[in-house]
């Protein structure tokens, strides 16, 4: 009985500590959302208000009107950076898992590219896109994003294919299906959940990227992060408007991530801890 009580006390203390950490974790996001719906008269007053009784939609209205093209740019760029990565990743990820093309060297070379530092790439990309007259186009941002998304997709999909039992493919082979047919009919449907997770990670990476978009866009093709960084410079005191834009860029990703949190760790650690 005494032992059970001690366990109960221990768990209560741990739970309290965790709740405290949860508050610290959520507070900045709460504060951003709060700022985005507070009327101007309540912003930047002392003492600050920790909640609001008369929320307003003016900042969100401003954001939806003003940053909609930016939002669309982010969507298009992230969509193509993801789609191309998934197509190439499915093809070569399969080949690496099943045929051992290029032995170990080639897949590990591709893995190492996942960590290629954007800071090294920004100068050559800026000069190349300038020569090609692609500065301030969505294409100019999609291409360098592939440096990160393609190796990531190859590596993740390789891992997922390795988990599909060979016997399933062999059975289809006996039934006379071609090799590419097997990939399409047997393997890809089996790893579909893995493809979804991989796609989401590529999407989030591209969506959140700042450095490439900052250097390769001017005003037509800017993405949400670039817009947020620019708003800060242009209008120092537009706390409500910037908060609404920042929320618009963040909340969809958080929702997606919570829906997929079961797979999160695998994606983050490149499948190194299963």
């Amino acid at each position: 009985m005494k032992k059970r009580n001690r366990l109960l006390v221990k768990r209560t203390i741990i739970t309290l500590v965790i709740i405290l950490i949860v508050i610290v974790t959520l507070f900045p996001i709460y504060w951003m959302l709060l700022t985005s719906i507070q009327p101007k008269s309540e912003l930047m007053n002392y003492p600050p208000r920790f909640f609001t009784t008369n929320p307003t939609g003016v900042h969100w209205a401003f954001t939806l009107k003003d940053t909609l093209p930016t939002f669309f740019n982010s969507l298009v760029i992230a969509f193509f950076a993801t789609l191309i990565a998934i197509i190439l990743g499915s093809m070569s990820g399969y080949a690496f898992a099943r045929y051992k093309v290029g032995g170990d060297t080639l897949p590990f070379w591709i893995l190492s590219l996942k960590f290629f530092p954007p800071v090294v790439a920004i100068v050559p990309y800026f000069l190349m896109m300038k020569t090609l007259r692609l500065i301030d186009t969505r294409t100019a941002v999609i291409i360098p994003h592939l440096i990160i998304t393609v190796p990531f997709a190859v590596w993740m999909i390789k891992g997922f294919v390795q988990e599909v039992p060979r016997e399933l493919e062999e059975a289809a082979m006996i039934d006379g299906a071609s090799q590419l047919g097997i990939i399409r009919i047997i393997t890809l449907p089996l790893i579909a959940p893995g493809l979804v997770v991989t796609a989401l990670f590529c999407f989030i990476w591209s969506w959140n990227d700042f450095m490439f978009a900052l250097i390769l866009t001017r005003n037509q093709a800017i993405t949400i992060p670039v817009a947020i960084a620019g708003m800060r410079e242009a209008h120092g005191l537009m706390w409500g408007e910037v908060s609404a834009t920042a929320s618009l860029g963040t909340v969809p990703i958080i929702v997606l991530a919570i829906l997929l949190q079961r797979y999160l760790v695998r994606g983050l650690s490149l499948g190194s801890i299963k």
Binding site: P225, A246, Q261
Partner: peptide, 26 residues
């Protein structure tokens, strides 16, 4: 899942939120 939320927040937004919560006057 709640504790994992920060790592999904766009780094640019983290910087901006820093300006908000560490704002000096209020």
């Amino acid at each position: 899942p709640i504790l994992l939320i920060p790592m999904m927040v766009m780094p640019v937004v983290v910087g901006y939120v820093g300006r908000l919560v560490f704002e000096i006057r209020s």
